[in-house]
Design a protein around this nucleic acid. Sequence first.
DNA 1: GCAACTAGTAACGTTATGGGTTACATTTAG
DNA 2: CTAAATGTAACCCATAACGTTACTAGTTGC
Lengths: 95, 95
Amino acid sequence: MKMHNPPHPGEVLKELCIEPLNLTVTEAAKALGVSRKTLSAILNGRAGISPEMAIRLGKAFDTSAESWLNQQMQYDLWQAEQVVGNIEVKRLSAA
Amino acid sequence: MKMHNPPHPGEVLKELCIEPLNLTVTEAAKALGVSRKTLSAILNGRAGISPEMAIRLGKAFDTSAESWLNQQMQYDLWQAEQVVGNIEVKRLSAA
DNA sequence: GCAACTAGTAACGTTATGGGTTACATTTAG
DNA sequence: CTAAATGTAACCCATAACGTTACTAGTTGC
């Protein structure tokens, strides 16, 4: 049922990109062209990765923007399901 | 280089779900548990598909919420690239 | 003609979120 | 001690999803 809590993309960013390269948050933020606050918020799970941010990450770390947005999507979806997973919706498929 | 303009998920919703079942916007909105305005905005490309909406669509049409969010992601990413695709970002990958 | 249904949308409000700057407290390196 | 780095609070701005109400148009049936 794929019920595992997806990690926040910020964690992944930190562990797979920032730390391995020994980058400081300040440096990375400058390189990415965003404020230190913005990057910090992402790294600490207090903000999501926007499409624009995904593009920046893709360019900076030579990865695909999609991969970042995909992680964010998985995370957002899981969060939404925790909150609103029980809503009642009428089945329209088998009309 | 995959440079095609992704369709707005609302178009797909309309063509693949609403129209084939001969559903009115009013009916579908009621079944989904959202306002007519909200559905209308999505169908006409003036609003995106939120995680919550993706869950509703998944339940109503017996599809995966991921597929809807994925389409939205592709669309958002393409839009963002059109606007902010030329930003300069320092390469941090080959540190 | 007229009533009923449908659809788009403008106007208004609420809540959430990304992003920016400034400033403060804390920790760590020299 | 001093300087750098980090987290974060306070404040501002813009965008966006969602809701209700209400107006404007089409369409359909009587």
